[in-house]
Design a protein around this nucleic acid. Structure first.
Lengths: 164, 164
DNA sequence: TATTGTTATACTCTATAACTATA
DNA sequence: TATAGTTATAGAGTATAACAATA
């Protein structure tokens, strides 16, 4: 027993000894790790409302931009049109949104949230905001704004990956 | 022609009119967008060296932690052991790393970078650092440090998604 | 001829169960 | 019995080609 404790003290957690010092010197590595933690936590929050990150995002865009077309939503979400179809199928099946033919262009659908959709939107946003408040409790409003500003600045940058 | 220009001026880019004001109020949304931009750009940088983000990350860990075992590397990279196998297979096939039996525990492999692996490590890190310098050119060292510090703080937080 | 939404499909990334060889 | 590495496989998420309806 004493021997076991001694052995444990020598190597309590080998994984913790793995150095990521080089990677921590990269801004991209640190942002990605933070993003992973927040997304994981956010996913757990939304799961209680039977929403995934991507269905939540689509719902928010539709509530905020009533009459939006699928192709424009796909652009805004930076996803391909075919992948949006199944997401909207799910939201429509749950009666959270409607797809109405556009009279001036019968190829397109105008997306609108139903009352149930707007209610879920309110509920989800409230949950996500409290979640962020809890997770980022150590940061004050100024610090949180600074982080968001810096992230928006970086998100607006483009170099090699720019395709357009 | 004049009519066409007029029409264009009315609606130059419908997608740009889609408001994401609500989502921009969420720190997680802003971090994820920044992360996507940086990862995309980083991927393009590493592609020139025939590396993906995940193979690059594994290589850096192995060079920095010689003798590392696969299970500890998987923990450090937050990926499952089976998924690491194919990554190491690729690095080993390209003679960038070796898998040596551990004499004290013949179940485990000690991972080490070859000379070629260390050379690619140097080359890749140089490329990634210049890439970040170019992408984040508008930010000075202090601002970049502040961002990294904030991201590391967030990455260290755990609430709902904490499984352990 | 070009565009909107759709289907089918493929490719990557990730997660789990079960096996082997060692401990 | 438990652990390290492996295999097979299933599930997300994402990307492309091709089609019907419409412009």
């Amino acid at each position: 027993m004493a021997q076991k404790i001694a052995k444990t003290n020598i190597s309590p957690d080998p994984a913790a000894c793995v150095s990521d010092a080089t990677l921590r010197g990269l801004v991209g590595y640190n942002i990605r790790r933070a993003s992973t933690v927040i997304q994981g936590d956010l996913a757990a929050t939304l799961k209680a409302l039977d929403l995934r990150m991507i269905t939540f995002t689509a719902l928010v865009f539709i509530v905020d931009n009533p009459g939006l077309q699928q192709s424009h939503l796909a652009d805004a979400m930076s996803i391909e049109r075919p992948n949006l179809v199944v997401i909207l199928d799910e939201l429509e099946r749950r009666d959270l949104i409607t797809r109405d033919r556009v009279i001036t262009d019968r190829r397109a659908y105008a997306l609108r949230a139903t009352l149930a959709g707007r209610r879920l939107y309110d509920e989800a946003l409230k949950a996500v905001h409290s979640h962020e408040a809890a997770l980022l409790g150590n940061l004050n409003d100024t610090e949180r704004s600074q982080i968001s500003d810096a992230m928006r600045l970086i998100a607006s940058l483009r170099t090699k990956a720019d395709k357009t």
